[in-house]
Design a protein around this nucleic acid. Sequence first.
DNA 1: TGCCAGGAATTGC
DNA 2: GCAATTCATGGC
Length: 285
Amino acid sequence: MTVEIGLPYPYDFDRALARLAGNPVHAVDLDERLVRVPMDEGNLVSVQGTGTFGEPSFRISGLLDEKQLARVRWIFHFDEPLDGIAAHFADTDLAPIFAEHAGTPLVRSFSLYGELVKSIIHQQLNLSFANVLLMRFMELYGMQQDGVWRFPAPEQAARLTVAELRELQFSTRKAEYVIGLSQAVAEGRLDLESMRTKTDDEVTAELTALRGIGPWTAQGFLMFGLGRPNLFPTADIGLQNALKALWDLDRKPTQAEIRERFPDWSPYLSYAALYLWRSIETPAG
DNA sequence: TGCCAGGAATTGC
DNA sequence: GCAATTCATGGC
């Protein structure tokens, strides 16, 4: 099943793809303007940009049914207008960032479990090495289907040993965190799908009860996994460096200094964070 | 070379 | 309770 859809608001699909392409797990083709998404039912769905920033349209192919279309619309933020968000920041210190990145959507993760695994691997490590670790993990324990990666089932990862992950150059702690998370999901102690209907605070409380998931990882899950609009990980080094540059400081801002800006930025903290990250990820803008 | 990296748990006072 | 330390290793 293939459908063509258009959106009634500006949407920067190319910048969305550029961000997805920063994660080597994703199957993105920037020239063809498409990304292929592994679905839980086993098929692959291709989402291709066919329009422009001002008149966005898409060709979505490989769908099995309407339910899958609804999931794709949810993942890509197709039913949540973005055009009021940049205006909210017009009179703030983030106006230049929003002038550049307005219309870039907060595309949700293709796998909630995978989002947490990726986040744990990325804790404290530079992006390039973290991605090396992630791909070593995927090549040994993930599944590749027509060039598209799927994370291993939590039940499979739950049976890994710390020694096996140490061989991939995971730290002992990272190995324990990933295995422990997988066991919690596999044993039903953590129901990730149920998080979709819970409040930010409820999700944070459940996730941070697990060893290895702190505020930064929980906030990332809410932002990128669930697409929640009002999270800002103040502990994030990248965001601290982005604000240091934006504010022209000679040191990174403290978390308290960042939180002082929350009243002006709310209720769109997630977009502030997303665009600040983008502002330092792509030197050309 | 030494500090830093899209943190979190643990220890020490 | 809160600050300092530890974890592991690549990048620069």
